[in-house]
């Protein structure tokens, strides 16, 4: 294609994007009966996650079993339940980070599916790249080798800290896994440290197995998949919400090992010496 055609195409692409922008702006400023974003949604009390925040989903079950109308009971006045940091104990789940309590307790299936998606994508990556061999990287310099050997243990330590504190602070298993995988990438490029892929796959498969085992035990003890059957403790302590702590640690190990396998595959193909 010639260069002038390309410029015409760029002009039409810009026009298309502009029209799309105006189209997307219209529901924000419309006042009619058409599509518009409800102003009441800016109040958390009008959302379902209000109950997630108060860690009392069983309240909804009680309301729904009494009379099947959820919409009347948005304003619950009889259950003045208070969650205080460092004092409340034996809640539904004892995580201080409300996002973690949603990710691993109320929407545990979501996280399980997420893990499966990540597993399948890394599997597909290894299948796609199974017959290729890549150009060699440059030999690392002395400075790279020394710096990477100094930094990498600290990166792994930060990753472990983040997945152990997933129920107290921002972060959790998935960011921690990404940090651990970055550490393996550093050590691959910087000092040519040769990970054995079989070890990583061992960690990954066992972590995934134990996540599913612990979730299935919830089916036996509490009657629901991903049910919390261990004591939840006091909100804000490190050893609170034991099941979520264990599962998030396993998720961190699994994601870290899985992404490391992906990075190793992208680095030198599946042509590994120990396969």
């Amino acid at each position: 294609m010639r260069e002038s055609d390309f410029n015409v195409g760029k002009f039409f692409a810009f026009l298309f994007v502009l029209i799309l922008f105006l189209f997307m702006l219209s529901p924000l400023f419309e006042e009619g009966d058409g599509a518009k974003i409800d102003k009441n949604l800016s109040d958390i009390k009008n959302r379902v996650s209000y109950f997630h925040s108060l860690k009392s989903v069983k309240e909804i079950e009680r309301i729904l079993s009494d009379n099947n109308d959820f919409s009347k009971y948005r304003e619950i006045t009889d259950s003045a339940k208070t969650v205080i940091f460092g004092e409340s104990k034996d809640l539904e789940n004892g995580t201080a980070n409300l996002v973690t309590s949603i990710v691993l307790d109320y929407r545990g299936f979501d996280t399980l599916g997420e893990l499966i998606v990540l597993f399948i994508s890394i599997l597909g990556l290894t299948i796609i790249l199974s017959t290729l061999s890549f150009a060699k990287f440059e030999e690392p310099s002395f400075l790279q080798i020394t710096g990477v050997k100094f930094v990498t243990p600290f990166m792994i330590l930060v990753g472990i800290y983040i997945f152990l504190h997933g129920h107290l602070s921002p972060g959790g298993g998935f960011p921690a896994g990404a940090i651990i995988a970055t550490a393996t990438l550093f050590s691959l490029i910087g000092c040519k440290f040769n990970y054995r892929v079989s070890n990583l796959k061992f960690i990954e498969s066992n972590a995934g197995f134990f996540v599913i085992l612990l979730a299935t035990l919830g089916l036996y003890f509490t009657g629901s998949f991903f049910g919390n059957y261990l004591p939840t403790g006091i909100v804000g302590k490190l050893y609170s919400s034991s099941l979520i702590l264990i599962i998030y640690s396993l998720v961190g190990l699994k994601v870290g090992a899985e992404l490391s396998v992906g990075i190793k595959t992208l680095y030198n193909g599946e042509k590994d010496d120990d396969r």
């Binding site: 925040s53 006045t77 003045a80 208070t82 969650v83 205080i84 940091f85 980070n97 107290l168 804000g236």
Partner: peptide
Amino acid sequence: ILHSGMKLISP
């Protein structure tokens, strides 16, 4: 995220 001294009071 709950931090020290924070309360969630319903409703």
